[in-house]
Design a protein around this nucleic acid. Structure first.
Length: 209
DNA sequence: GTTCTAGAAC
DNA sequence: GTTCTAGAAC
């Protein structure tokens, strides 16, 4: 066989090495949301414009993702023609959040949600987080997790809508955003500071009945 | 995004 | 000695 005579010196690299980095690889971890969009087992709502799924690694008791059915990369690639879509996504987000909270037989704590986006996302395909503000979850582990939801690294959907209406786009200061992930751990409710994630997580329990 | 784990921090 | 964080993942 001819192939058996190839010297390892001339062994071809994996085809993905010829693409512009791993991000372009079809089954790279950053593409999981495109798969989730089609996966009925994680879906809680779908209409002509958007799909809602349960986050696979929820960072609070209720953590959902609202995604457009048509591919949009992220917040910074939005323009004013996307306004009706984003407004629709926010409306659906609130409806599904209310329903999910009621279904969970929740008391007051579940009624408080934030709806918004990571300014610098790690997963491809725009996704609006719907996240209850208890932040009680085994999947909440790192400082980056915490700061990505409780600092300005997280931009509210209402602010995205306002900026699109005012400027036609959302300007994101990448350098400033990255620094926010390294900020000290601060409780989002009472502003107490904590040295470690375990201490913060223990404190969060005191805010939840 | 997560998992794993070396070694920093305590 | 144990807890906890932070960077590599071929």
């Amino acid at each position: 066989m001819a192939s058996a005579s190839y010297s390892t010196d001339f062994k071809r690299k994996n085809p993905s090495d010829y693409t512009n980095g791993n991000q372009n690889k079809k089954n790279h971890w950053s593409t999981v949301l495109s798969t989730a969009l089609e996966d009925e087992s994680v879906r809680v709502y779908k209409d002509d414009l958007c799909t809602v799924i349960i986050d696979k690694f929820p960072k609070a008791r209720i953590h959902l993702l609202v995604m457009p059915n048509q591919y949009i990369a992220d917040v910074k690639s939005l323009n004013n023609t996307d306004l009706p879509l984003i407004k629709h996504m926010l409306k659906i987000a609130k409806e599904v959040a209310e329903k999910t909270a009621a279904k969970a037989n929740a008391r007051g704590i579940f009624n408080e949600f934030r709806y918004g986006f990571h300014t610098i996302p790690t997963l491809a395909l725009l996704h609006m987080h719907v996240i209850s503000q208890d932040f009680i979850s085994n999947s909440l582990k790192t400082k980056k997790h915490w700061n990505s939801f409780t600092t300005n690294y997280f931009i509210d959907a209402s602010e995205v809508i306002d900026e699109l209406q005012a400027n036609g786009s959302v300007r994101i200061d990448t350098t400033r955003m990255k620094k926010l992930l390294d900020e000290d751990l601060k409780c989002h409710r009472c502003s107490n500071n904590f040295a470690t994630m375990p201490k913060l997580k223990q404190h969060l329990l005191t805010h939840t009945s």
